[in-house]
């Protein structure tokens, strides 16, 4: 078993909202009790629809935001109790790749400057060494040497995403948090970028926290999967058990709703109804109960805990009966 690079224990992130002059104060539980272990060379995919808390989770994993409760350890070091300098080093070992390749590169800097910036900020190496490192990284992600002095607006979306990946790797991070890295790209470009990410993972033994809403991409790249709904994990475990033996009704709904080119998939007739409930003042019990075809009285009364069913974690009262 390889080493655990990132360990999250019961992470929570709550935002107070409203208030103002007359409004009632509310609490949005953007992330509410997430635990996972991410090991060297592995990919954990976080799956969910907008508003499920995956982006907040990404911000906590990159230490841009502290958790309200819970503990995040990077490479065995707890982040909450770390000194300021140790925290800084821990932060550098987690880098991020963003969804929108058009907003994630500084339009005023050349590719070369963008790639050297992380090194310059941290005083690593001298000028020529930084440039050499940046050029080497450019070649690694499949860009030409003469593109070093170009500005981001001269590149296509796929090339920009390569630059963003190269930038994330400049500081030799152990963990890369990728927030929907291919969902803004066309299919043919998406395949190129996914392959690149997998190549780099093998070469540098990177751990990926791969956030996505696209189940077919997740199925291709991930080893473990966590499905989130309203800030909580509803199903969590290895990819194989989740895709073949999903026990949570929400996961099953997602699988059924994802359009597939496989003619056999078209026979699935899962009922897909309802929308995400408001994150403000969520109902007691299971957040999915209002949309769930299997919902009973217990679902609206008592919140199901994540428990082991069919070889992976499921947060559903009726997990055994489903499937």
């Amino acid at each position: 078993m390889s080493t655990a690079l990132m360990q999250a224990t019961d992470l929570r992130r709550h935002y107070p909202v409203g208030g103002g002059l007359f409004g009632k104060k509310g609490l949005v539980k953007a992330v509410d009790g997430v635990s996972f272990t991410l090991r060297e060379g592995e990919t954990l995919a976080i799956v969910g629809e907008s508003g499920c808390g995956k982006s907040t989770l990404a911000r906590m994993a990159t230490l841009l935001e502290p958790p309200t409760e819970g503990e995040l350890a990077i490479d065995g070091h707890p982040t909450a109790t770390a000194s300021a300098t140790a925290r800084r080093d821990l932060r550098l070992s987690v880098q991020m790749v963003f969804q929108n390749p058009y907003g994630s590169l500084n339009p005023r800097k050349t590719v070369g400057a963008i790639l050297q910036e992380p090194l310059a900020i941290n005083n690593r190496g001298d000028g020529p060494a930084r440039e050499a490192a940046a050029r080497a990284m450019m070649r690694k992600v499949g860009l030409r040497d003469d593109q070093f002095t170009r500005y981001p607006h001269m590149f296509s979306g796929g090339q920009r995403q390569r630059i963003a990946i190269a930038r994330a790797l400049m500081l030799n991070p152990r963990v890369v948090v990728a927030d929907e890295p291919v969902s803004a790209l066309d299919v043919s470009i998406q395949a190129q970028v996914l392959n690149l990410m997998m190549d780099l993972q093998e070469e540098f033994r990177l751990a990926y926290l791969f956030i996505s809403h696209d189940l077919s991409v997740v199925r291709h790249i991930a080893r473990d999967v966590m499905v989130m709904y309203c800030g909580r994990p509803v199903e969590q475990g290895s990819k194989d058990t989740i895709f073949t033996d999903a026990r949570h009704p929400y996961t099953r709904m997602l699988l059924a709703a994802t359009p597939s080119v496989d003619p056999a998939h078209r026979k699935v007739t899962e009922v897909i109804k309802g929308e995400l409930p408001s994150p403000l003042n969520p109902p007691p019990g299971c957040a999915f109960a209002s949309r769930c075809p299997h919902s009973t009285d217990i679902c609206t009364a008592e919140r199901p805990a994540l428990r082991e069913v069919a070889g992976h974690g499921v947060a559903c009262h009726h997990a055994e009966a489903i499937g």
Binding site: S156, Q159, S188, A191, L194, M198, V261
Partner: peptide, 24 residues
């Protein structure tokens, strides 16, 4: 044909996706 091959869904079990080089 290349577009369909590049779909992750069609690449089950293969370590890498077939890609279309270059861009539009």
């Amino acid at each position: 044909a290349a577009l369909l091959d590049a779909l992750p869904e069609r690449a089950m079990g293969r370590p890498r996706l077939p890609t279309i080089p270059g861009m539009v």
